[in-house]
Design a protein around this nucleic acid. Structure first.
Lengths: 195, 195
DNA sequence: GTCTATAAGGTGATAGAC
DNA sequence: GTCTATCACCTTATAGAC
């Protein structure tokens, strides 16, 4: 991590907020400068181009997941012991920054060719992941299930809140806390059934 | 449904494709006109503004889910019988148009205030949904689980394909077909375990 | 219905003064 | 590092000819 000036930090904070909310194309350099309370040309001074500023934000968004995935796919712990920890970690990460999943998934969906590089950056080798799972029946589906159950409620937050919690955001948050306790039990039963 | 001219259909088809891929802000009226092979001013002639064209696309994207959700929340069938049917329907809908979930979720995430209107358009009354589920323990989590398990793999398709299928798209599609058969069994066990 | 021409304004990026 | 001024370009939308 390089040293960052205060102005640089303000820029990234505003860029993060706006890119998360309105996307890359929906956010202008002027919007970001206004939000940060600085002159627009300073964005170019610090990041040269909009693309480079976006990349900085995108990488920062990804970086929050790196330790999670690393622990998941590199640990020697048995799946059954790992799962409850991973569920807690992922949901806590989502609570801290609920806009990241939809932001990252939208970007990867628009530019799927980025995926190999992203996996590289995270230090994940898909071949090893697949090899590690070979023993477990339906291991691909189980990994998909794990991430689905933890991440999707946040990606679909407005729908979930509107449909099931009468628009009450606090109720949604409370349910997600409860979910950290309920899911491991549910998930482990779901795992043991096959085979 | 009103009668539509050939030109109008071409416009919507191109707008759909581009809005799904690049989002509203990332797509210009010129892009759409070029893709449709028509003059740009015709877009304004048929839809007056970009906003109105986007609304037409957004509503069409939602309309695919209306019958699914309607059958889910209005049927008198027991949850246990309904679930396998719903899983099949949702996954089939996702296969037919894999870009819709991320498109819809991104739009609702940027504009959550749209949610009440969207539920109204779908003819869904959240109060009734909640009342119907009151008997089942953790019914909110179970509904969340159902949609998570069916929809998330498609929203996260590049990640899933890159991480678990070595970038092989056919393998992803095959796994999703298999998933239609596996999920109901998994999900029903997951339901019965509580309480 | 379809076109050309045009309006009014926003965009990202840079040069150059301080 | 921070500013003003300026660049060439792209944006949506509309007026008016055919």
């Amino acid at each position: 991590m390089e040293l960052q000036t205060e102005t640089e930090l303000k820029i990234v904070a505003s860029a993060e907020k706006l890119f998360y909310q309105k996307g890359k194309a929906g956010t202008s350099m002027q919007n970001i400068a206004d939000d940060a309370g600085i002159n627009r040309t300073l964005l170019n001074y610090y990041f040269r181009t909009k693309d480079q500023l976006f990349e900085a934000v995108f990488r920062k968004a990804l970086s929050g997941f790196v330790p999670l995935l690393a622990s998941m796919f590199k640990s020697d712990e048995a799946f059954e012991l790992l799962v409850p920890k991973v569920i807690h970690s992922i949901i806590d990460a989502m609570m801290a920054n609920p806009q990241i999943p939809i932001f990252v998934l939208q970007e990867l969906s628009s530019n799927p060719e980025r995926m190999p590089q992203v996996l590289m950056d995270m230090g994940i080798d898909p071949e090893k992941v697949i090899k590690k799972g070979e023993g477990q029946a339906h291991f691909r589906h189980l990994i998909i299930n794990l991430f689905s159950l933890c991440i999707f409620p946040f990606a679909a937050r407005p729908v979930v809140t509107g449909l099931l919690f009468n628009g009450d955001n606090d109720a949604f948050v409370a349910a997600m806390h409860q979910r950290k306790e309920i899911l491991p039990e549910m998930f482990l039963k779901l795992m043991s059934q096959n085979q």
